[in-house]
Design a binder for these strands. Structure first.
Length: 210
DNA sequence: GGTCGGATCATCT
DNA sequence: GATGATCCGACCG
């Protein structure tokens, strides 16, 4: 695919099945300028929620179109942000054509810039200066680190303050797949993608890898 | 090292 | 009224 010179991922990148976008997003970069503070991070873990036929998808057929999942029906490259467990925000990228409700959950990323802001937002001491997995490994942590809230639900991800830009795609043989985390339906569908061995990949219940 | 429970609330039935 | 695409701190060994 031809990418524009400014490096912003084009709508065509997202106008594909969610599982392809989930795999291909690994290695690309999410940049946030929320509150005027720049943070960028390389995506290392994703999950695909493929549409009405996917029982774990927020737009599964039994649910249909509701106020919460409205953004999933928008054009490819739209943000879908929702609150979970009453506490945390989760950030997704809408895939496929308008009216086709599928998305990719961004579960973890490796900070590249703005570490001080990340540490500040995550309530960690300013000392140190380097990134650790507990800052951005896991969807709730990642959203908090980048300042992503429900205010960005429906946001166009080619525009500031939240943009997906070209990074260095993960080599094909470094990508691993497995069941999605924390879902009760379609629990065995292998729609989770991550970069093998990357320390910023989340490890729910069992500590962090490495 | 591991396992467990509480926090906290929008959304949907 | 129940559920949930989570996180963190407490507790145990």
């Amino acid at each position: 695919m031809k990418l524009p010179r400014d490096g912003v991922l084009p709508p065509e990148f997202f106008d594909r099945p969610a599982q392809h976008v989930a795999r291909d997003l690994l290695g690309h970069v999410l940049r946030s300028d929320v509150d005027g503070r720049t943070v960028s991070a390389r995506i290392v873990e994703t999950e695909a929620y493929t549409g009405p036929q996917d029982p774990a998808c927020h737009a599964a057929a039994r649910i249909g179109r509701t106020r919460r999942n409205e953004a999933m029906f928008g054009p490819p490259g739209t943000a879908y942000v929702y609150r979970i467990y009453g506490l945390h925000w989760c950030f997704n990228v809408v895939t496929g054509a308008s009216g086709d409700p599928a998305a990719v959950l961004i579960r973890a990323a490796e900070p590249l810039a703005g570490i001080d802001t990340v540490r500040d937002r995550r309530g960690m001491a300013a000392a140190g200066g380097w990134a650790v997995p507990a800052l951005t490994a896991g969807p709730g942590r990642l959203a908090a680190a980048l300042g992503i809230t429900g205010a960005l639900d429906g946001h166009n991800l080619r525009r500031t303050p939240l943009v997906l830009v070209e990074g260095s795609p993960a080599p094909e043989d470094s990508v691993r797949t497995g069941p999605r985390i924390g879902v009760s339906r379609a629990a065995d569908w292998p729609l989770r993608y991550w970069i093998d061995g990357n320390p910023f990949v989340s490890r729910p219940r069992g500590g962090l890898r490495r």
